[in-house]
């Protein structure tokens, strides 16, 4: 149990953060696309995420929560080192979160202000998350190269979120807004692709340890499915986005699935690069883990309740399935 539990919890943490990136990723992406739409479309776009965003955002609390619960020694180090980007992200998430309600409840004269807050909050939160991820991959290093690497991810992650947001709109909307979503997604494709490629090249350059792991035989061969799957997913997206007729024919959601595949592969690659460390080069997950008695107490909760959460989340998505038109309290 003593060896199994830390691994179980690092898996739970990784899974929660991956789910967060996909689910709140499309929320934040739609937030960043907001200024491109007219007022009517803005309402539909926000309606397409309105019933879900709150639960989606809870996944980051879960991810950071697991870090705090299972790896309290690492939690302090990580959170202290990321003090500034975490604060910036929290400002962004706060503005984005309250803008959902304020833009329709504070009066028409303030609607523009809250639309801007929605956009600005989404953008700032996305970039800050990229910065945090970058700083984490470099082992919370403070050299100029590491900062440059963090900046690179800080501009790549928003592009990925915009793609997710556009793909979500292809699932949830129709008519002119659908066409616009296809265009927006197509425009974000190249920046995302270049960004991901640069990140993949830069990661082994900033970390010798990661380079060692990836570029020694026979590991390199076993790892080939990861880049190959990413490239294939990218090509599928590129092909689909040039065929609006295929997308309209009901294949729009494949863009979303292909993006999820890219996120999953990136997460697997990252996990392989870092395991068994929790703070790269400084602390392993076994060193950081909480006492076994505490992990056992929470293990049963996670093992029983997490599937239940997955079950009722799926139910909520089913209740609100189909094209989004309007949100009404009635």
């Amino acid at each position: 149990m003593a060896d199994f539990l830390p691994v179980f919890f690092v898996f739970a943490m990784g899974l929660s953060l991956l789910v967060y990136v996909v689910l709140d990723g499309f929320d934040l992406g739609i937030g960043m696309l907001l200024p491109l739409a007219d007022e009517g479309d803005k309402n539909v776009m926000i309606a397409s995420i309105g019933p879900f965003w709150d639960a989606n955002e809870t996944w980051i609390v879960m991810g950071v929560g697991v870090l705090l619960i299972a790896f309290p020694h690492a939690h302090g180090i990580v959170m202290t080192a990321l003090y500034i980007p975490v604060t910036v992200m929290l400002f962004g998430l706060t503005l984005r979160g309250v803008a959902f309600d304020f833009r329709v409840k504070a009066g028409d004269d303030r609607r523009r202000l809250w639309n801007n807050a929605f956009f600005g909050g989404s953008l700032v939160a996305s970039m800050a998350q990229g910065w945090m991820l970058g700083a984490y991959i470099t082992g919370l290093d403070r050299s100029p190269t590491s900062y440059a690497f963090a900046v690179l991810i800080a501009v790549t992650l928003p592009a990925l979120y915009v793609m997710l947001g556009g793909a979500w709109l292809m699932i949830k909307t129709e008519g002119e807004l659908f066409e616009r979503a296809v265009r927006w997604t197509r425009n974000a494709l190249l920046p995302m692709g270049v960004g991901l490629l640069l990140v993949s090249i830069a990661t082994p350059l900033v970390s010798e340890r990661i380079a060692e792991r990836w570029f020694t035989l026979p590991n390199a061969i076993g790892l080939m499915p990861i880049p190959v799957a990413c490239a294939a997913a990218y090509l599928v997206i590129a092909w689909l986005l040039r065929r609006p007729d295929v997308l309209r024919g009901g294949y729009g959601h494949f863009v979303f699935y292909a993006l999820v595949l890219i996120c999953l592969m990136a997460a697997l690659g990252l996990a392989y690069s870092i395991f068994p460390d929790i703070v790269l080069g400084r602390m392993t997950l076994f060193e950081a883990a909480a006492a076994t008695s505490s992990l056992e107490f929470i293990f049963w909760g996670v093992a029983i309740i997490l599937p239940l959460i997955g079950f009722y989340s799926a139910y909520v998505y089913r209740v609100f399935s189909g094209k989004a038109t309007e949100l009404s309290y009635d």
């Binding site: 709150d54 879960m62 929560g65 705090l68 619960i69 505490s294 959460i309």
Partner: peptide, 20 residues
């Protein structure tokens, strides 16, 4: 840790999901 963990697991997801 576990007390906060159970708050997220049993309460946060429940209220956030059914709020929609």
């Amino acid at each position: 840790g576990p007390l906060l963990g159970y708050e997220v697991l049993t309460a946060f997801f429940l209220e956030a999901s059914f709020l929609g």
